[in-house]
Design a protein around this nucleic acid. Sequence first.
DNA 1: ACTAAAAAAGATAAAAAACTCTTTTTTTCT
DNA 2: AGAAAAAAAGAGTTTTTTATCTTTTTTAGT
Lengths: 141, 141
Amino acid sequence: MFSKSCKYAIRAVLYLALHADSEANIGVKEIADRLDVPKPFLAKILQQLSRYQLISSVKGPNGGFFMSTENMREPLRKVVECMDGPEVFSSCILGLPVCSSQNPCPLHTQAFIFREGLLKVVGSKSVAELARQVSDEGLKL
Amino acid sequence: MFSKSCKYAIRAVLYLALHADSEANIGVKEIADRLDVPKPFLAKILQQLSRYQLISSVKGPNGGFFMSTENMREPLRKVVECMDGPEVFSSCILGLPVCSSQNPCPLHTQAFIFREGLLKVVGSKSVAELARQVSDEGLKL
DNA sequence: ACTAAAAAAGATAAAAAACTCTTTTTTTCT
DNA sequence: AGAAAAAAAGAGTTTTTTATCTTTTTTAGT
Ligand code: FES
Ligand code: FES
């Protein structure tokens, strides 16, 4: 489903949303350590997220990453699409050139239900909402 | 979700189930042409499926692949697991080391529902049943 | 027995994904 | 101004996946 980059990105964004307050930015090192992902690889991912304005960064000493209010308002879906492209939620699970309910593949019905459910979560909930849920329900990152 | 090998495998098995009768075996070429997948790659995949006794083959002139009665009785799940390993249906969608409802990731609930739905289809229905459904409902391969 | 057709096996190649290293830029602090 | 910290940028490496090519084995038909 998701590439590793994408998985790391989702977890990193939620980590940032949970731990970055306006005071202290968070460096790649901390995130990489806490999420147990390769640091230089994560750095690249954060770079890209930053380019697409899904997270914010400041350079220099005491610099690092954080989530602006606008960042927090974005749906997680944008993070996913930033990493894996927009096709993730619309491509056929069997790799057929088009996925359509008019001309479905044998697994379409199930796959479709799933994608819709997932879209409901990552598409309609903001990073802020999801982060709250993570902390309220003690979900794992 | 599925690797390309796995997608090709699923489609190839269903194609065989639909088109191979006891009279005429089907060669790699025909399947590759019809499903529009690279022939030598598909050959490797069929080889593996054959090794795991999920499809049957005969060598020599007029040889090719076909589905034995036993092959037809297997759930499609075996095909998936033969290609992508047994973890596909139990691993965390965010790549966390374990997926568990006790200690879920933020997307667990949705992912779990999906996997169960998919498992219901590929795990409980035999290739024969699925193939029938494909032909009855005019599904695409 | 010989030929040809087909899969099996094995070796290789190309492309993509995952990961790392090095240099540059920006910025803070002394 | 200079040193140091941190991200940005760019180049490079490794691993995995996808795909291809070549040789061998099996077998049917002549
Ligand atoms: S057609 Fe295959 S998932 Fe929709
Ligand atoms: S814990 Fe992530 S999918 Fe179950």
